[in-house]
């Protein structure tokens, strides 16, 4: 643990393998999404979406976002899949064959993608320590969070302490969604079952 390449504040000189892992995982995600778009059985679609979410959790782990990766694996891959399967139980699980070729959506998606690629060319390159995102408030939190809140995990410190009210607002959103689901799915007496 002590002989770690970045311990003196300099970045590791040989970053190729970490970048390669991320690239391979992103390629796997692309393959999953293409398979998902072509699958017509909705059960298969939901399982592929679970695979996609777990791949996303793995990518997030490699990107050092461990808290996000855990949440994505538990909530994105776990609870979302359960919700989808529950909805499939109440609906038919086969998608109808499309009646016409989706040329217009394809054109719109590719145009949006082209614009986004053009916009991304002005962004800082991957893992650039001089990028603006790394040079402003983030450094303050990394330097002071431990003293000010006592939590060694900076993500926890920001989420629960500095931005505690935002997290409270988030629980309000979840409560509202839960109330909406109950209001939509409540069995009213006198309504015939489908």
């Amino acid at each position: 643990m002590d002989t770690w390449p970045g311990a003196d504040g300099n970045l590791a000189p040989e970053p190729a393998i970490e970048t390669l892992i991320i690239e391979v995982l992103l390629a796997l995600m692309m393959v999953t999404v293409v398979a998902l778009a072509r699958t017509r059985n909705l059960f298969g679609v939901v399982v592929l979406f679970g695979v996609y979410s777990f791949l996303m959790a793995t990518v997030l782990t490699v990107l050092d976002a461990v808290d996000v990766a855990m949440t994505e694996a538990a909530v994105g891959a776990g609870i979302s899949t359960v919700l989808f399967l529950g909805a499939l139980l109440l609906c038919r699980s086969e998608e109808a064959r499309p009646v016409h070729r989706p040329w217009l959506p394809l054109l719109v998606s590719v145009a949006v993608g082209g614009l986004l690629v053009y916009g991304s060319l002005g962004m800082p390159v991957f893992s650039d320590p001089g990028a603006p995102a790394h040079r402003h408030v983030a450094q303050h939190y990394l330097a002071n969070a431990m003293d000010e809140t006592g939590a060694p995990n900076v993500v926890t410190a920001v989420l629960a302490s500095y931005r505690g009210y935002d997290t409270l607002g988030e629980t309000v959103v979840v409560f509202t969604a839960g109330a909406g689901v109950i209001a939509l799915l409540r069995r009213r007496p006198g309504r015939r079952k489908p």
Binding site: P5, P15, T19, A65, A133, V154
Partner: peptide, 10 residues
């Protein structure tokens, strides 16, 4: 964009 190669989780 938050990742730094050679860095670690916060």
């Amino acid at each position: 964009p938050g990742k730094l190669i050679g860095g670690t989780a916060p």
